[in-house]
């Protein structure tokens, strides 16, 4: 069986209907476990005090802000190369989830930054690239809404997605490219240096898994909605011609 079979809307609807309850259930359990563990059952950090608990929403949201865009990039490339409608609709479906994650990362970062850095905002490479990524998300969503023909909208938004991918990657690797700014390096890097304690790392992994599963759940539901909207438009057009 080929993976491209799932590009068939009927096959996608069947498979996603079967998978959704499992993924959604797992998302709720994992997310609640990660957040409750992180909030209630972790100790304060010796430098950051109780603000370290913000880690369990900030890092998973930032992870998903970047990865949502990368998922949209893959879907956009599939659309541009193979013209599968489900992939274009999946990219469209992921954008509101991605923009929400980016907003959460920006908000929680500012709330965390104020007591730790003494400022809500700094024009630091990582913060700035995240803000630009947020603006790209808004532009991407607006472009989908602004163009009536869905295929043209999919073409243009795919190109915008390719351009925005530079900022998605910059958001992730900015702290490595430019050794400046207030933001710390990668929280879960394998490189030698100061490492996060297991007491924080384990609940963080669970919260990250929860955010990934939440993203998958929401994108599946939203893609199904987009497929239905596309069928509705097709039937309405057929009705008008009859």
């Amino acid at each position: 069986m080929s993976i491209w079979e799932y590009a068939n809307p009927r096959k996608f609807m069947q498979t996603s209907a079967w998978a959704l309850p499992w993924v959604a259930g797992l998302a709720v359990v994992t997310l609640l476990t990660g957040l409750v563990w992180g909030f209630f059952f972790t100790v304060d950090d010796y430098r950051q005090g109780a603000t370290v608990k913000i880690l369990f929403v900030h890092v998973p949201a930032a992870l998903m802000a970047v990865n949502s865009w990368l998922m949209m990039l893959v879907c956009s490339l599939i659309w541009l190369i193979r013209r599968h409608h489900v992939s274009a609709l999946a990219a469209k479906a992921a954008a509101p989830v991605g923009v929400t994650m980016t907003l959460i990362a920006l908000f929680t970062g500012a709330i965390w930054g104020q007591p730790m850095w003494g400022t809500w905002w700094a024009w630091d490479p990582r913060l700035t690239s995240f803000l630009i990524l947020f603006l790209f998300y808004l532009g991407y969503i607006a472009l989908w809404e602004a163009i009536e023909d869905p295929d043209t909208a999919a073409d243009l938004t795919s190109v915008l997605c390719l351009v925005g991918s530079i900022f998605a990657l910059l958001s992730r690797y900015a702290v490595n490219f430019w050794n400046q700014g207030l933001h710390q390096g990668a929280s879960l890097s394998l490189a030698p240096g100061e490492r996060m304690a297991m007491a924080f790392k384990l609940p963080l992994y669970v919260a990250m898994a929860g955010f990934v599963l939440l993203f998958v759940t929401l994108v599946l539901i939203r893609t199904r909605t987009e497929i239905r909207a596309r069928r509705l438009r097709a039937l309405e057009a057929r009705g008008r011609m009859a």
Partner: peptide, 27 residues
């Protein structure tokens, strides 16, 4: 016990959960 950082921590969780719940409801 969140001590002097109760405000920022609760605000971060409140904003995050609020946005996630709004997104889920809208979806």
């Amino acid at each position: 016990e969140l001590g002097k950082y109760a405000g920022p921590v609760l605000a971060a969780y409140g904003v995050s959960l609020g946005l996630v719940l709004a997104l889920v409801w809208l979806t």
